[in-house]
Amino acid sequence: MTNTVSEEKKDRTKSLTRKLYKNHVGSKIIRVLVWGAAVISAAILIFLIGYIIIKGVPNLRLSLFEWEYNSENVTMLPAILNTLEMTVLTLLIAVPVGIFSAVYMVEYAKRGSKIVKIVRLTSETLQGIPSIVYGLFGYILFVLTCGWRYSMIAGVCTLAIMVLPLIMRTTEEALLAIPDSYREGSFGLGAGKLRTVFKIVLPSAVPGIFAGIILAIGRIVGETAALIYTSGSGTNFTGNITDSSRTLAVHLYCLYNEGLYMEESYATAFVLLVMVVGINALSSFIAKKITKK
């Protein structure tokens, strides 16, 4: 009995809605537009990735992962190794500084303090600066003024400044999400501020911090404009921080610039895309784990 009543109700709402939409053609058009926009955006992404995969995979050859770079074989292995080195070194600088500054902002600074406001403003400014401006700055300061020439370390320093606000912000958010009861409990047991930060607060914020670090890795791996004039385009992997060395993204730009290596460019773009997609998947996987908690 009740079932039929609710069913009748449903039918009535349905017919009412239908009537409503009959009188509002505009709404129908907008609904189509909204769905269309979503489909187009998704299609663009799928097409872009699909295109790079289809064109890239057939051009992958084992020789592209050989050790020696020369004009006959523009191997990308040195560039991949350089990218790894660049990522590790940049994180070594940016992660401690970013985490410590977030700790100061959340745990130490008084609420509404001037320093916090200024730091927030400057880190927002840093996030908005285009990478080419970072590149120019790194060129002037590290390459010219410090006299480091085109070198891995000049690129590392430039990128460290670039990803610093990203790590700061994500760490800050992670710290803010930790309930005050954790801190109070720790203080109540007689722990000092420092011990509370390192033993209680930071360990509970690890997943959030980790997600931020992975985002930073994504930016480092994909960065080109900030590196062309800081770490330069040295083709070999030496591991030496004073040598000019190209990352994979810069390698792709150099191939484009020379204009001779179309097939290799496709393969390089594919490898770069795979790396970035992998990094992104990892970060959203971790983010999902956090929200599940």
């Binding site: 500054s101 600074a109 730091v119 840093l126």
Partner: peptide, 8 residues
């Protein structure tokens, strides 16, 4: 910590 915060 303060010095790191001033870095940006």
């Amino acid at each position: 910590f303060l010095i790191c915060a001033l870095a940006s």
